[in-house]
Structures are given as C-alpha cells and as structure tokens.
Write a protein that binds this DNA or RNA. Structure first.
Lengths: 349, 349
DNA sequence: CAAGGCCGTGTAATCGATTACATATCCTCC
DNA sequence: GGAGGATATGTAATCGATTACACGGCCTTG
C-alpha cells in the first residue's frame, strides 16, 4: 500500500521470480506459459497493481488499441446514440474510443492523418457521409492497414464497409401504411440535398409511390434539412398550395414536428385534415401532440455492428468487406396519421 | 510520392542535415533553434510528411496529450452537447478526447485506473455526478498529478474543480416569473433523488417559494427521474389531488412534456388551467404544444470551460482549483405559463 | 589576450513493453 | 541410450521520440 512509482513489468518479474518476457507472455498469450508460473505472475500483478503502459506497448507493437470516431456534430443526439453502441462494443474488446468532431469544417485527409499517421488509431469509424471521396482514398492509400467503417451515413463509391439503416424500406413502410389508410396523394419534405440519407429516402419515396400508382408531383417535394425550422418553412409553403397531398412523409421527425406545428397554427388539423409521418423515432415523438407515426431504427445497435465489423477487419476475419450491413427498421404507428379526409381542399385559407 | 514506410525523425534529420535532437527541438521548442536550421527542418518535415509518433512521445515524456471524459450515458443529448464543447477546446490545444461510457454500472476507481494508470490520459473530465466520493479519492491519491474537472454534474465533498450551471438561479427565475403571473401555490416534480442537480433544484425551489411567501406543501413535491415517463406518472397523481398547485416547476423539460401530455389527456389545459415549466431548453421545447417556458443553459460553453480549467491545471496556471465555476442561465418565456386561473379546482374530475 | 558566458547543435541514454532467438529441460521412440 | 521434438523460459534487441550532457564557436569584458 506504500505509494511508490508505477509498477512496471520488471517489478512484477522480480516479485514472481521470472523474466520480463514471461510476464509479458502471461499477459498477452497465457497459453504458452505453464500454469504454475502463470498463477505466480498473475498474483504478482495483482499484488503490485501493475497495468501495462499503453504507450510502451503501442510503440513496440505499432498498435494503439484505439479506434477513432469521426463525428460531424457531437451535439446531435443521433450521433451520440451510435457512439454509445460503439463504445460498449469497443470497450468490451479492450479498445478505447477517441472522438473528433469535424464540426462545420469538411473533414479532410489531413485532419484524419493527424490521428492515423501519428499512430493514435488502429481503425476509423466515420459517421459523416459528407466526407470527400478523394480525401478518403488518400487516407486509405496512405494507411492501407487501417480499416474504415461507415456507420449510419456513408459515401457513395467508397470501397469499404458500412452499416446503415434500411432507409428505403422504412419509407416504403410509411407509404404502405398511408396507402392502406386510403391516401393516394403524397408529399415529401426532404433532408439536406448533400446528405446521402436524404437521397435514399427521397428516391424510395418517389419510387414506391409510383409503384403503388399513387399521385406524385414535383411541387409536392419540398427541400429541407432535417430541422424543425425546415418543417415550419415547409408548412408555410403547403398552406399556400392550390392543391395539396393528403399525406406528408417527412425525412426526419424534426421536420415532421415543424410541419405539424406550422400546419396546426394555420388551423389545419393533423391527422383529421392531413396525415404526417416522421423518420427516426426520437424520444419526443411519443409525447408530441399528436404522437408521431414514424420509423424506428436501432442506432445503438448500428454502433455495435459497426464496431464489430471494424474489429473483424482488424483481426482479419471479415470476409465481405465491401458489403454494406443493412439494419432493419420498424414502423411505429401513432396518431399523426389517419384515414384520408375528403375535405382537405376546403381548409385552404 | 513513393509510398514508403512512415517517416521518422531520423529521416527528417538526414534530409535537413541536422541531428534528431535538433529536429525534435524544432518541433517542441522552436525558439532555441536558429532560424536557418528551423526553416530547413520545417521544409524537410513538410517534404517527408512526417508526423511525430504519439506512442514514442508518450513513452518518453510520460504524457499522453489525451483527456478522458467519463460519461454516464452517451445516448443522452445533454452529455453530447457538453462533449462537443469539450472536444472543440481540447483539439484546439492539440489534445485528444477519449470517451468512456460508464453505462448502468457505477463508475469505480478501477475502471478509471484502466485509463489513468495505463498512461492513456493526462486528465479527467467527469460528467457523472453519481461517482462514489471514496472511489474518486482513491484515483486522486493514486495519481495526484492527474487533474479532475467535473462538468455539469459534480460530487459533493470532492476537492477539485467543477463547472456547473446556476441551477438554483434558474429555479428562482422560474418561480419569480410565475409569481409575477399571480401564482402562489407551487408544485415541483423532482429529478432522481440520487442526482445532485435534482437536489439543488428542489432545494432552491423550496427555499425560494418560502422566501417569497408562497404556499409549499410536501405532497406537492413529486419524485421523478428527468424522464417523460416520470412526468406522465406525476400527471396521474396530480389529477387525483384534492387541492392542486396552480403552477408546476419540473426539474427537466422531459418531465414537463410528460406532465403536460398527461394533464392534457385528462382535460386539464396548459396554461389556461395550470402553468408548467421545464428546465434545460432542449430543442423540442420550442415546437412542443404549448411551447415550453424553461431555463436555457449553454452546455457547449460548459464543455469549453471545463476543458479550459483542465488545461489550466495541467499547465499549472490555475490558481483557484477548488472554486466551482457557475455558468449563468436564462429564462425562456413561452406559452406553457400564464396568469393564474381561478377555476383550477373545478377541473378535478 | 584569456576567462567566462551564451548560443546552437550533436551524442547517446532513456522511456517500458514485446518478441526473435537462444537455451534448457523433459519426453518419446527406435 | 541417443536423436529429435515439444515445451517453458530467459537474454537482449527493438520500437521512435525526447533530453541531459557535452562540445565548439563566438562574443564580451577586465
């Protein structure tokens, strides 16, 4: 219990009467050491309170046991959910999680290299679909042994692993749900047009409405950016439309909140006059008035899965590196959707 | 452009015709090197694309330039906001941010030591007020040179820095606001009773209502846990109260959402029949129906400030280590509060 | 002009763990 | 009984940067 300097392998070795090599072996590859020695060493480890010095280990093995997550905006709860899943899985495998927030700035190869080339990270998890493909390829060719896995978002054309939600499937579920309620005229408020999720959701929307034989008009597709403000802005436009869809599929829950708030303010009732759906099933959807029909995705599990795929690549037992993992999503029916109403047209001011 | 093995100091040294010592000096303490040499070395650094190997540096200097953040629940957007502020400040100072999620498990000295004793972190930012004081003290005495800063939450009795919001001040603003609207009978839905923020908010509530001469009854203080569910549960109790407060101050926005949802469902109108306030000003407060009167705190800035205080301690220029930094908060008036209504009693079923 | 100081730089030890290679012991089987 | 193999352990080199110490040159000053 005397507080000395930090114990090192040599201290453990002396105490247990073996060499440093043996101590190291007990810690890294116990099977090669005889049981008696192993126990003696472990006892000495416990007694001294020894912990390997990560810097020394990293230097020698050229490995950091650390994964870097690149997040476009840490404040965004979506990302933190994924991070949470990541962290659990990584720490269980004795890996640490380093996080950097690319912030407003576009992520550059240089920024990533600050970590990778310095040997600070053995692998990368990228939550930011806005990275430039060329920059990514620079990183890949400079550090070919450092695996990269995309989680949630991804970059089209990137050669490597990704874990994503079934965005198209989710949209189809929503359209089907509304279709069954009798809706035939659909509108969409989209996400930011630089975002890959926006594209997938919008494309699936258009495709599926057409496939079902519903009515689809270009002016019923409004641009947005996943935010509440975008939803409010869309509401202002909707109100002035001469002819309106009876159902709006929004690219995010937040857009739906804004849209509903704006419509409600203008006297349009949801779902009596018009149905609205979200995407993501954030916590608030349940308590919003009306509770929002939306798509739920397990962001935590996406984090887990991304971590698993990364570790698999690190340990060379991943076979299908380039195949994306598509995680299932679920329809959550609440009260923002209802049977189509005949009097929608009359609600225009 | 030929892709070789990673360049090292020795490569830079050779290219610029100096010794490794000089290269290192240019990088770490440029002032001691003559201008001509410095420029030559920097040119060679650029040409080779050299980056210091962090592991080697860490090993030699016994320093990691990495800060560990201990988060009780990464999924919680509050924490991620603080992390965001932290990350910006740290990365500007060329520090990296390592994150661990204590999860459901209570944080132990052992868990922290996994990082600290291994030399993975030079300092700690703790966002979890639920750590055991004794465990903390174990860490402090085992690693007296590793500074610890609490952000947002904190542990009573801990000797060290903390950065917090003015929780009591925020509650007083809310009570004052309601008082001016004519309210005299106040209720409170509290946070988890293990949480230091809950205590501060509840105590400030009781104190200030008494100071103003309002009515305070023990049965008007309901236990909760910051969640929507807690608010809903509180609503069920409120509805059956023979005599009710005219205003409810909730320990979090989420509680307020749940409470309002529950009350609305039971036919109680907010704010016509009863006023309700939240705490935190999360994004949804604005679009909730009715928009929530609440207290705003700059979580990002708390992160910044915590990082600054930590760096100050690391670089030995912090003077008042034990004084908490209390960040100001702001009242945001929206539509969940209104003048006291005389007919509240009649709304009981 | 010699002594002393300062400045800029180089040499080589050092941080703490891992691991290639060498060695020692014991067993098996012809 | 000895060759050969398997098993367990030790010795010492190594990872890449930092830095104590030493050194040489130049300037100042009595």
């Amino acid at each position: 219990m005397t507080l000395q300097r930090k114990p090192k392998v040599i201290d453990v070795a002396r105490l247990s009467g073996v060499s440093t090599a043996t101590v190291s072996r007990v810690l890294n590859d116990p099977a090669v050491v005889s049981e008696a020695t192993r126990e003696a060493v472990l006892a000495a480890v416990k007694q001294t309170g020894y912990r390997v010095n990560r810097a020394a280990r990293s230097l020698r093995t050229n490995t950091s046991r650390t994964i870097l997550a690149l997040v476009p905006n840490l404040s965004n709860p979506f990302f933190s959910n994924i991070l949470s899943g990541l962290e659990r899985e990584l720490s269980a495998a004795d890996y640490s999680l380093l996080i950097t927030d690319s912030g407003d700035a576009k992520l550059t190869a240089d920024h990533i290299q600050r970590y990778v080339a310095a040997g600070q990270a053995d692998g990368l998890i990228i939550l930011d679909g806005g990275v430039d493909l060329q920059q990514l390829e620079v990183v890949q060719s400079a550090a070919p042994t450092v695996p990269i896995v995309f989680a949630c978002e991804w970059v089209e054309g990137f050669k490597g692993a990704s874990v994503r939600a079934d965005n198209a499937g989710g949209i189809r579920m929503l359209v089907d749900h509304l279709w069954q309620l009798g809706h035939r005229k659909f509108g969409h408020v989209s996400g930011p047009d630089t975002n890959v999720l926006s594209h997938y959701r919008q494309r699936a929307f258009e495709q599926h409405v057409v496939d079902l034989g519903g009515e689809l008009r270009p002016e019923w597709i409004l641009p947005g950016d996943f935010s509440i403000a975008a939803g409010k802005h869309a509401a202002a436009q909707v109100i002035n439309m001469p002819e309106k869809p009876t159902a709006w599929i929004c690219a995010s829950d937040q857009i739906a909140f804004g849209l509903i708030a704006g419509l409600t303010e203008a006297g349009v009732r949801v779902p009596a006059d018009v149905s609205v759906t979200g995407f993501d099933n954030i916590e608030m959807t349940e308590v919003f008035n009306p509770p929002l029909t939306t798509i739920h995705q397990h962001r935590n599990k996406m984090g887990n899965e991304a971590a698993r795929r990364l570790l698999a690549q690190l340990h060379d037992y991943e076979t299908e590196v380039n195949t994306p993992t598509v995680m299932p999503v679920y329809l959550v029916e609440r009260q923002s959707t209802g049977p189509v109403s005949k009097k929608v047209e009359m609600c225009s001011p």
